[in-house]
Design a protein around this nucleic acid. Structure first.
Length: 573
RNA sequence: GCGGAUAUGGUGAAGUGGUUAUCACCUGAGGUUUCCAACCUCAUGUCGUGGGUUCGAUUCCCGCUAUCCGCACCA
């Protein structure tokens, strides 16, 4: 199966032609020449996409402690500075002045510097100059200054002169972090909980390729699951022991090796470093299977130490195999407290935290040096606040008074009658902490592409003719039922249209009428876009109110009454 | 972004410095047909884009855009 798919460009091309022809996908702005990395979903693709997103959403929302939020795609610069998308963590790129090739600056210095990743722009330039590194493309040494590689679309909020600098978001995650206080309140301050967001993300790729795989504007779906790192969570991973996941753990020096393990075993052995990460992996696997991804063609690859994003402590990619090889479609990352902490620091908000009760209250008895305000105030006037804070923060009680406090070149003398030495009892009932977060992030377009690839079957019905079937899962099909009159005359057309109406009145079911050309051709048309069931109205139908129901994948037909059919339709999902 | 190839109806292809650009499939209308892309008649729709050469360009040349492959970039 693997061998068949890879390199079968002809089949991929036929699929792309089909998707374009039947209104699933097409390059956007085509009549204006097209734009690389931007795609349209057509009438059928639009419905498929909606259903995939709905199923994704239901999968997580049904867990009970996960809510959906939505936030703007236009994001002020400060937010992305805090998140690390701009600035310190940016990679630099050097451009060859001679042939205009672009290279990652730190990659050029590989072998010349122990840690080129840590250098800033000007140090990179001087290192490159020092070692006279030639352009890998044209061998000349003629570099333009290194520039941060910024793959975000920039814009301005408000009029351009005084406007605020902003970017189109490169991920939806920041929305969940910034809304943390509101979500925390919603869940009445009780961890763990999560929030999801589905929406557009933007990356101004230098050179997008591979069709739907690398887009400049794409559909993403992200989940941020907030946990208390000290709280033990049991996920009942044993429930999935019958499923063996293909795992490629971080090899630590050895060749990467694929192993088959159940989640619970992988967590026990410490290969998956966090139980909740394991839980999201198996829940993700479950969802992907239900969406129609072939379970044989999925694997989880652990990020290696040096490829792991700056904030992650364990990160697994769900890779799906298709015509482009193994492609990362989901990333599940344990991000620690990085994001909330970063926003708390740069925004000066103190709301991005949670409260943890101690199991037993801690009582601390302490001798403190308590300032007597009525004495301090008149003497120190506007310096009183500083003095008070200083005295209250003293760890040790001064042996004798007066004492001298130095502050900005001034000396303040504290007499013994300005303070009261007393015993206090401080009861600590709990503490503030920054929740840790586990983030499963899904590339919806990549998943949709693989759903289409995995369901694209070509069977030869007759000699050397490709008969195409999209065996899409019934949860995501754009059209659920097609109704075909054997002929459009003698009332069969009318009877069929009535059945279509009846089916459409059932919530969430989409039915379609097709009366043109031969019956065989109509079956083929339906199969080609993945309609799971065809209903055929023939002469007998007019006499006894029965129809035949044809199943897409088996092509089996069954005669049943219209009443039974409608019952079947309303129960089939 | 670099190098190579390519761009012709909705899809897949053929072809040409000169009247109305060809074929198959698809799509629509009508006919025929008692269940898996049958057949007949008719119809719709096209030379990616801008410029140049030319009396005349879909065809030759150049730029742009897009697609595919390789490199690079990216996840």
């Amino acid at each position: 199966m693997l061998k068949q798919m890879i390199g079968d460009e002809a089949k991929s091309r036929r699929l792309m032609s089909l998707l374009k022809k039947r209104g699933f996908l097409q390059p956007a702005f085509e009549i204006y020449g097209g734009v690389a990395g931007l795609y349209d979903y057509g009438p059928l693709g639009g419905r498929l996409r909606r259903k995939v997103m709905q199923k994704w959403l239901n999968h997580w929302i049904s867990l009970g402690n996960i809510v959906e939020i939505d936030s703007p795609t236009i994001t002020p610069e400060e937010v992305l500075k805090a998140s690390g998308h701009i600035g310190a963590f940016n990679d630099y790129a050097s451009e060859c002045n001679s042939c205009n090739s672009i290279f990652r600056s730190d990659h050029l210095l590989e072998g010349f510097h122990t840690n080129p990743d840590s250098l800033d722009g000007s140090s990179l330039d001087s290192e490159i100059e020092l070692h006279k590194i030639p352009c890998p493309s044209c061998s000349k040494v003629d570099w333009l200054p290194a520039k941060p590689l910024n793959l975000m679309f920039s814009t301005t909020i408000g009029s351009s002169k005084i406007g605020r600098k902003a970017y189109m978001r490169p991920e939806t995650a920041q929305g969940m972090f910034l809304q943390f206080p509101s979500i925390y309140r919603h869940f009445r301050s009780k961890l763990p909980f999560g929030a999801v967001q589905m929406g557009k993300g933007y990356r101004n790729e230098i050179s997008p390729r591979q069709g739907m795989i690398r887009l400049r504007e794409f559909n993403m779906a992200e989940l941020e699951y907030f946990i208390d790192p000290l709280m033990k969570i049991e996920h009942k991973l044993n429930e999935w022991d019958s499923i063996k996941l293909k795992l490629i753990p971080d090899p630590v020096g050895n060749d990467p090796e694929e192993i088959l393990l159940s989640v619970s075993d992988a967590v026990k052995k410490g290969i998956i470093r966090h139980q909740t990460v394991g839980w999201f992996m198996i829940k993700t696997y479950e969802l992907m299977s239900e969406l129609g991804i072939n379970s044989e063609l999925m694997r989880f690859r652990q990020h290696e130490g040096d490829e792991m994003a700056h904030y992650a402590t364990d990160c697994w990619d769900l890779e799906i195999f298709g015509g482009y090889g193994w492609i990362e479609c989901v990333g599940i990352a344990y991000r620690g407290c990085y994001d909330l902490e970063a926003h708390q620091k740069s925004s000066k908000s103190n709301e991005l935290r949670a409260w943890r009760d101690f199991e037993e209250h801690i009582t601390v008895e302490k001798r403190v040096c308590s300032p007597i305000q009525s004495k301090i105030g008149p003497v120190f006037k506007d310096k009183s606040k500083f003095i008070t804070d200083y005295l209250e923060s003293l760890e040790e009680i001064p042996q004798k008074f007066p004492i001298v406090i130095a502050n900005q070149g001034e000396e303040h003398i504290i007499e013994s009658d300005m303070v009261e030495i007393k015993n206090t009892k401080i009861i600590q009932r709990g503490e503030w902490f920054i929740p840790h977060v586990i983030e499963p992030a899904f590339g919806i377009d990549r998943i949709i592409w693989h759903i289409l690839e995995h369901s694209h079957k070509e069977i030869s019905k007759k000699d050397d003719e490709n008969y195409t079937v999209l065996s899409l899962n019934s949860d995501v099909v754009p059209i659920d039922f097609s109704v075909y009159p054997l002929f459009e005359k003698d009332g069969m057309g009318l009877a069929s249209k009535k059945i279509v109406e009846n089916i459409r009145s059932i919530k969430g079911i989409n039915a379609n009428y097709d009366g043109s050309k031969s019956i065989g051709r109509r079956y083929a048309r339906g199969d080609e876009v993945g309609v799971p069931f065809a209903i055929t109205v023939d002469h007998q139908s007019l006499e006894d109110n029965t129809i035949t129901l044809r199943e897409r994948d088996s092509q089996n037909q069954k005669r049943m009454s219209i009443e039974d059919l409608l019952k079947f339709v309303s129960e089939y999902k």
